[in-house]
């Protein structure tokens, strides 16, 4: 039983993953809702965690695993307005998930029921990793870099040093390189604007498929900033933090992507 103040937030989260994965289970316990799923080619993994404080009201008195088809849940979420409140409920036996949308002024109520699936999902253990470089930058900037370089090549090498982070690609038509300096570059509406904030233990340079990175940038509407976690010989983690309507951190959406290697 979970009440979310703005249905649009859940829609944004589902829209950011529905093209990457077909089906997934929502694992619910008293602390929140967790999802983990790999794409069909087993190159990337998406996880999200929606903490209890993302919801106006939240209760879950026993652990549940709800099998969801992503296209179907996206269709239902599209039926609500983004500033509707949304109440999610399961019944007993647990074979449906019900969605009750209520308009902000309370003049419209709509209810939809999603048939749940029996999914036998493999669960992967994601090891705690000490990343060599953690790069924080504006989502819009990361999205632009990926889209720009994808017009030239199909993979992008991210190289992080103490002073800057560079993104480069090579294709048939030529090459492209974008470099962001470490540090604050100015102020906009009293908020610091970073080129990139870099925490570094050791310089790293890794290559990744731009097709997947572009999928990940669909999460850009969830947060101002994206955090890239890189380490030698480990998958890239691209993290978007999720905030509730009180601007408190209330979960995350994380994508993991295996690197490309030269033979």
């Amino acid at each position: 039983n979970a009440l979310i103040k703005q249905a649009g937030l859940l829609k944004k989260i589902i829209d950011a993953i529905k093209d990457l994965i077909d089906e997934a289970t929502l694992d619910c316990d008293n602390d929140g809702i967790y999802l983990q799923a790999m794409d069909s080619s087993h190159v990337s993994l998406v996880t999200f965690y929606l903490k209890k404080n993302l919801f106006e009201k939240y209760s879950c008195n026993r652990n549940l695993s709800l099998g969801i088809n992503m296209t179907s849940i996206a269709k239902i979420l599209k039926c609500g307005m983004s500033d509707d409140t949304l109440l999610l409920e399961t019944n007993n036996p647990i074979d449906i998930l019900s969605f009750k949308f209520e308009s902000r002024r309370g003049h419209k109520l709509s209810q939809f029921q999603l048939r749940l699936m029996n999914l036998e999902m493999e669960r992967l253990s994601i090891p705690d990793t000490e990343y060599s470089c953690i790069i924080e930058m504006m989502c819009s900037e990361f999205s632009k870099v990926c889209h720009d370089l994808a017009t030239i090549g199909d993979s992008m090498t991210i190289t992080c040093t103490k002073k800057n982070v560079t993104f480069d690609t090579t294709g048939d038509l030529g090459t492209g390189i974008v470099s962001l300096k470490q540090g604050v570059v100015g102020s906009e509406n009293d908020e610091n604007v970073y080129a990139a904030s870099i925490k570094i233990v050791k310089p790293v340079s890794l290559s990744f498929s731009l097709r997947y990175l572009i999928y990940f940038t669909k999460a850009s509407s969830l947060s101002n900033k994206v955090i890239l976690h890189m380490g030698e010989e480990v998958p890239l983690m691209v993290e978007y933090k999720i905030f509730n309507t009180y601007e408190e951190e209330a979960g995350y959406l994380r994508y993991f992507l295996a690197p490309k290697v030269n033979e």
């Binding site: 080619s41 190159v43 990337s44 253990s125 090549g153 993979s155 480990v234 993991f256 295996a258 490309k260």
Partner: peptide, 14 residues
Amino acid sequence: TGTQVRLDSFFKVT
């Protein structure tokens, strides 16, 4: 360019 590594080689099935 480059060979795509699969994620399974990093994360183990529990």
